[in-house]
Computed example of a mutant assay.
Amino acid sequence: MVKSSVTDEHVVKTSSTVKSVEVTVQILEVLTEATGAVRVTDLARQLGMTKARVSRHLQTLTHLGLVDRAREGEGYVFGRKLLKFGRAAVYRSNIVEISRPYLTDLCQQTGHTALLATPTRGGAMVVSSVPSQFEPGIMVHPGTVLSLPSSPAARLIYYYENQKPVPPRVIDNIKKYGVDFEANARGNGLGGIAAPIFEPDGLIASTVGIILSSSLLLPEPETSLLEMVKGVAESIQAEYAEGAVSSLKP
């Protein structure tokens, strides 16, 4: 009988630990989707829990550095340690590792800076790049955010995340070329070409592309450049999640 009691106690503790982990994940998911600091009251309402219970979890997460109090006003935001984990996860992700040799090949084939970007709030974040030796002035460092509406990478991610309104020209470019492109994207004489890569479930995983002089994109880019970008995207796709495609593909 004593042995059974000990076993039951172990099961209860294990169940309680698992539940605590689930609540932690739920809290972090809410903070991920939020555009700013989230108050305890709002967290409790969204999770269907009491404020006291949510507060206890937040105290633990704050102590661990996974959550921080907002600097201004009430509420909580992602902690610096969690951001550190997130950056490490992105830069060491499978798709980044897979893409490295392909980015080098794309840079060598086209003579232009090649880059891989993943979805981030408001656009696309560069997570890997290979600068062209012939264009020392064109360097895009990892962590750079490419924004709407000028960046082809950001536009593709926005479109395939089914956001509205759809940036101009994206659908026409995808239908005609299988990629998106834009000249003079930031008003600096540079432009870009980007192609999508999808997760196994069809969600957008990343984009691969090149940065180059706008003069090479006007009035229309060379077909060979578009095909090289598209071909590299297809090669990465085949290795990362072969056959995956978005239902939003026109």
Rank of each mutant, 00 (worst) to 15 (best):
S4T: 15
V6W: 01
H10W: 11
V12Y: 09
T14G: 07
S16G: 07
V21L: 13
Q26N: 13
L28Y: 03
E29Y: 08
E29T: 15
A44Y: 11
T50V: 04
H63F: 14
L64N: 10
L64V: 14
V67P: 01
A70K: 11
E72Y: 12
L83Y: 11
F85E: 04
A89L: 12
I95R: 04
I98P: 00
S99W: 05
S99E: 02
P101I: 11
Y102P: 04
C107F: 03
Q108A: 15
Q109T: 15
T113H: 08
A117F: 07
V130L: 07
V130I: 12
P131M: 06
P136K: 00
L156E: 01
K164W: 10
V166H: 12
R169Q: 11
K175I: 04
G178E: 07
G178N: 05
V179Y: 05
V179G: 01
A183N: 09
N184A: 01
G189V: 13
G191K: 02
A194T: 00
A194F: 08
A195C: 10
P196A: 06
I197P: 06
E199Y: 14
L203V: 04
I210P: 03
S214A: 08
L218R: 15
E220M: 11
T223R: 14
L226D: 00
M228R: 15
K230M: 06
A244G: 08
A244F: 05
S246L: 07
